[in-house]
């Protein structure tokens, strides 16, 4: 490769790295704040996935060390709240709780919510609330 091209490439690469370093710095700040809040309150935010597809809103949350009987799940029109004690001998150990409070991307019908807890993963599925007029297509 010619010298000038190499130096341009090098500069682009350096630019890339700076952006990556900045993003990673911001992420790290986020982790720190989350960690500190968790340590202070004794509440852990579980890993989770929330998405809407078609006429459903679906949440899964990783709650290892919890038990079906002890999971508290509240569904509102626009939120899910999951609470559960975490029975684990790890760091801090007993007394730690999972708490997840999520605002939903769409309004749901709370009566339609179904949930199951399997292999340490909680799955919650809700039907979206449909309100509107049916329009005839010409």
């Amino acid at each position: 490769m010619e010298e000038w091209r190499r130096s341009v490439w090098r500069r682009v690469l350096d630019e890339f790295r700076m952006v990556e370093a900045e993003v990673s710095r911001m992420e790290d700040e986020l982790f720190r704040l989350m960690r500190e809040a968790e340590e202070r309150s004794g509440c852990m935010t579980p890993l989770y996935n929330l998405y809407e597809s078609g006429d459903e809103v679906r949440l899964t949350a990783d709650l290892p060390g919890a038990s079906k009987e002890e999971i508290g799940l509240i569904a509102g029109e626009d939120y899910f709240r999951v609470e559960a004690p975490c029975r684990s001998p790890l760091r801090g150990g007993e007394g730690r709780r999972y708490v997840l409070h999520l605002r939903l991307p769409a309004k749901i019908d709370p009566k339609s919510v179904r949930a199951r807890y399997k292999d340490g993963v909680l799955e919650v599925v809700a039907k979206k609330k449909v309100a509107g007029y049916r329009i005839k297509i010409d």
Partner: peptide
């Protein structure tokens, strides 16, 4: 498995 998953939560978050 369950204990391991709890231990690996941080690494999973970073990996994600």
């Amino acid at each position: 498995a369950e204990e391991l998953r709890l231990k690996l939560r941080d690494l999973m978050m970073r990996t994600d």
